[in-house]
Write a protein that binds this DNA or RNA. Sequence first.
DNA 1: CGACTGGCATACCCGAAAGGTATACCGCCG
DNA 2: CGGCGGTATACCTTTCGGGTATGCCAGTCG
Lengths: 292, 292
Amino acid sequence: MRYVIAVAEAGGFEAAAERLHMTQPPLSRQIRELERELGVTLFHRRPTRLTEAGREFVESARQVLADAEQVVERTRRAAGVDHGAVRVGYTVTTAFDEMPKMFAAMGARHPGIRIEAREGWDAELTAAVAAGELDVLLGRHLGVPPEFQTTVLRTEDFVVVVGAGHRLAGREAVSLRELRGETLRFFPRRFAPHYHDAVLGAVRGTGAEFDVWENPLPGLRNLNVSLRDSGFMVLPRSLGRQLPSGIAYLTITDEMPPIELRLSWQRNPSPAVTTLIRTARRLARREGWSVS
Amino acid sequence: MRYVIAVAEAGGFEAAAERLHMTQPPLSRQIRELERELGVTLFHRRPTRLTEAGREFVESARQVLADAEQVVERTRRAAGVDHGAVRVGYTVTTAFDEMPKMFAAMGARHPGIRIEAREGWDAELTAAVAAGELDVLLGRHLGVPPEFQTTVLRTEDFVVVVGAGHRLAGREAVSLRELRGETLRFFPRRFAPHYHDAVLGAVRGTGAEFDVWENPLPGLRNLNVSLRDSGFMVLPRSLGRQLPSGIAYLTITDEMPPIELRLSWQRNPSPAVTTLIRTARRLARREGWSVS
DNA sequence: CGACTGGCATACCCGAAAGGTATACCGCCG
DNA sequence: CGGCGGTATACCTTTCGGGTATGCCAGTCG
């Protein structure tokens, strides 16, 4: 049902496949098998248009899927799981994409659970956890206390970020070797030592060596300033996409270990915390984070 | 969802598994994984009872499943597939179990399709097909015109049927060799030559030989008369179960080829005919006919 | 008018998940 | 306290959903 709706909304198989985070052939097959089982043609092909029966199907199917969602919510409510509060600490690398989406997902599916979110650098979050002020941590290569359990929400590669005036700004992909002699811009290590080490370790693993110039101002918001004239940064791909205009990001052709976004929580989590964990996992599947 | 409802209705995992035509362990696992995903316990175990949340789940899930059924019906209706008529010829071996169930399934899911059913022996049905009076044939080892297409709806083994006073009537299983010297009762070959040959061929394939006494009256309705004193019959298992009281049926321990129930139709079937074929296949899956 | 391109279909492969078999465990009853 | 009904656990098999490579066809443009 989701597939038919996606094809109808996207106006074609290829576009729908992308939206569903899958490829076109299995999608075509699933639709065709459904058509065989129903004995009814849902789409005219070439161009892809809904048939009369297809319109009917999409309309009813939307209702059924919505109701199915309701089932789990009502059940959770009946079990008394849908209340309480979660205190989340997150890093700046999640502040543009993942954290807002998770916040939205929790609000939509579990309005009864209150979320207290606090952005901070590695040391601040660690201190807050030690003080018992946080239940959950969300970040990339955060320092996490050993008594916490962890799951990976997203795995992705790095991209190179340069200013729009850079000589490579028009390229799709580069090797790090092409950047020899340039300066790698980074925030000071003390703000997020594990992440800092992970990125530089990954870069050095390719055999490349760079001068690292540590911008005294941490944060990603003033990139166009620091990259105006020269130098480059190395960031997870999803962050590269979120940057303001005047900035270009390039795929790296060298072999590099991927970077992981992790969710951590202390043992014996409250029902509200487990609900947040489940919701985050669902979100990751829906958004295709395990893949890209 | 179907699984949870089945467990709730059956009052236990084992009984529910039987109703679903599967075994208990995978059912238990599925339920447990659903409970994990929901973060909610649906059943108290030992004894198996619904929790409060479980009741909520069952209630909502019933509605969703019913609506999902509706989706396919509305779609078929919109495609204009749900009208027309099918003329079905069937043999007496299907008259107790399969044919009534198929009739009921068609009435429930496709009330717009009219069914004309005609019971008859092999030769009568063949003649009716030749005269263009039938669209579909349902039977066990019927003679089917070569231009018909065929699918297998059910595969099962044979049982031995004896009168209640027979010396073996209390037994669970027998070898055909234990019946040496007794008379195999059968209807005259001319009524259904292919079926007759299939059964006797299967029996002789075990190495056993019997006197065959052909009851001049065909039909299964007067069995208790013909089996009152002595003799036995060999029938497909599902027919053995349907017999009147005063009759016992026994599993055969010898190796014998199974007997198939087949559905046949002429090429280029009308939409109504393909609908009936699909419905029959669904029915066969639901009833577990491919297995038993 | 034919070569090109975009988009769906076809063929084949692989891994995850569903179902089956064998068996252990556990509460209940005699 | 031992047998029994019924659920859980361990392990294997099969099925199906998804991926990659490639074919095919309609519409378009040189």
